[in-house]
Structure formats: C-alpha cells, structure tokens
C-alpha cells in the first residue's frame, strides 16, 4: 500500500498528541451500539423517503380493489399511453445506444484535443432542466418557431405529435449509455482491438467480435438506466405533448391527467404500473451489476 506522505504525517501527529495511551485494542469496527444506531438511522431515513412512497403508490392504487385497478390500466386511453411510452423508448434507446458506442469509441480509444469539453457536453442534458429541454424544441419546431411554418406546409408534425415526444425523450436520455461505456472502455484499453486489427480484422469485425462482447454488461446497464429515464420523463414531454388523450399522452402524463379528473384511484393505478416498471428496472440493474462485478473480479 502506497499512501500520500501528508496523510502518513497526519496519522503520526494525531497518535502522538491525542491518544498516547490507548495502544491496547486496535479497533477497526465501531462499537455494537454505534453500529445499531447508524444502521437504524440509515434504514429509518430510507423507509421514510423510499419505502413509504412506494407503499403509498400501491395502497392508493388498490384502495377500491383489483377490479377497479385492472379496469384503470386496461382502459383504451391508458393502453394508448402505454403504447406511446413504449414507442418513444423503443426509438430513443437504440439511437442513444449507437451514439453511446460511437462516443465511447472516439473518447476511450483515441486521444484528441477538446476531449474533456466533449465529455462535458455529453453530460449537459443531465443538468438541463427538463422544462428548458421542452422549451427549446418548441422554439425550433413550434408553429411560431424557426421550422414550424415550413413543417406545417409540408404536413410534417413534430411538436405535439409522436416525433416531438421521441425527441424530448432522446434529449433527456443522451448521457446515460455513453457515460456508462466511456469509463469502461477506457479501463479496458486498446490492446485487444489493436491486436485484432494487426491480425487483419476489419474495423467493424473488431467492434463486433472484440469490443462489444467486452462491454456487453456495461451496455446493458446503460440501457436499463436509459430506459428507466425514457419511460418516466415528465417535464420535457409535458411541454411538447399537447396532452391529447389517446394520442400524445405518455404514461407519466396520463397519471397527471387522471389525477386532474378526480380519478385518484386510476391515477395511482397507472402510477403503480410505472412503479412496478421501476422495480423491475432495479432488479435487472442489480442482476447486471453482479455480473459486472464477477467479470471484473475474474
């Protein structure tokens, strides 16, 4: 173990001045009472902020029984919302996947100037408010925006239609796969790919047979994160949706609409569907993480 010199000095300093007489029992564990208190505190905090809301979603959703619950999630508008949500995710994820691989290939396998700026730009959608994301698409594609009149003339609808929702979804999920792949591919280095190229493989073959198998779990992990965010996006989609029932309502917008119709049970029923989706996501994620950990330890 190599440590920074300053830290070493500090330890020595401390041991001399503060506790010169407690050499008896070297402790690297806290006292049991402290462990219980800390664990209790942590679990109390998590129960308050995680378990309680989760329980509330299902409790409110099932308030009037299973029949009402099933009716709420199989009603045509809810089904249309499910379809739209899946469509948006099904388009956004593959695009971001290709982007993530391309970006990670460029950033992890090559050196070039402005790399750190590029990485920051990829992160940008994470810190931009979803509302701002929706707004900028409206400034461009809205009827009063740059391209609006032209699009209208050519009968292309982007905003307040499926493409606008897909675009907003893509925007908010851009960073997730790329950010997962970049450190992974950086850590793996370039030796394997270089060997393949020298042995005569083409670039695509190298990508397909060497790189992708190496990063498949990271890829899956990023996809899961990306999917969770894509299906749950609210702010950006809400600005560009137009809230047309059965047409431009995603699941998370449908929750709001039902909520505004005094239809609390249905709102929470649809919400519980999304919560279930979140739980499945977490389960998948945990599974993938354990695979990644195995891969690294091997």
């Amino acid at each position: 173990m190599v440590d920074s010199p300053s830290q070493g000095n500090r330890i020595k300093f401390m041991s001399i001045t503060q506790s010169p007489h407690t050499f008896t029992a070297p402790q690297t564990q806290e006292a049991p009472w402290a462990r219980w208190v800390l664990t209790g505190l942590a679990l109390a905090f998590l129960s308050l902020f995680l378990l309680l809301p989760l329980a509330a979603v299902f409790s409110e959703a099932l308030k009037k029984g299973w029949e009402v619950y099933l009716a709420a999630i199989t009603e045509p508008d809810a089904l249309a919302a499910i379809q739209l949500t899946l469509t948006a995710a099904a388009i956004a994820i593959p695009l971001n996947l290709i982007f993530g691989i391309a970006a990670a290939w460029a950033i992890a396998k090559f050196e070039f100037r402005g790399k750190s700026i590029l990485i920051s730009l990829i992160d940008l959608p994470f810190s931009v408010s979803p509302v701002v994301a929706g707004l900028i698409y409206m400034l461009i594609f809205g009827l009063q925006g740059w391209l609006g009149p032209w699009l209208r003339e050519h009968d292309i609808s982007i905003i307040f239609a499926v493409p606008g929702i897909v675009l907003a979804t893509i925007f908010v999920t851009v960073p997730f796969i790329a950010r997962e792949l970049i450190p992974l591919m950086q850590a793996q280095g370039t030796e394997e790919e270089e060997a393949a190229i020298i042995l005569g493989a083409s670039g695509w073959q190298t990508l397909w047979y060497i790189t992708l198998p190496n990063i498949k779990w990271g890829l899956l992990y990023g996809t899961i994160l990306c999917n969770a965010r894509a299906m749950g996006e609210f702010g950006a989609v809400s600005v560009v949706s137009g809230h047309i029932r059965g047409l431009t309502n995603t699941l998370s917008l449908h929750v709001e609409i039902l909520y505004n119709e005094y239809n609390f049970v249905a709102a929470f029923a649809v919400a519980s569907l999304l919560a279930l989706l979140a739980l499945v996501t977490l389960a998948l994620k945990t599974f993938v993480e354990s695979r990644v950990a195995q891969k690294i330890s091997r």
């Binding site: 809205g142 009827l143 009063q144 609006g148 209208r152 905003i159 307040f160 047309i244 029932r245 047409l247």
Partner: peptide, 20 residues
C-alpha cells in the same frame, strides 16, 4: 373526437404553437 384539457391559457398557447 379527441380531447385535450388543461388551463385555458396553456391550451391557447399549445394551439398557437401548433397543436392541431
């Protein structure tokens, strides 16, 4: 017939921006 509901100004704004 499709419906869209919301605050009145929000809805007017959406029409201005191109809700069909």
């Amino acid at each position: 017939i499709r419906q869209s509901h919301g605050g009145s100004s929000k809805q007017a704004r959406a029409i201005i921006d191109g809700v069909p």
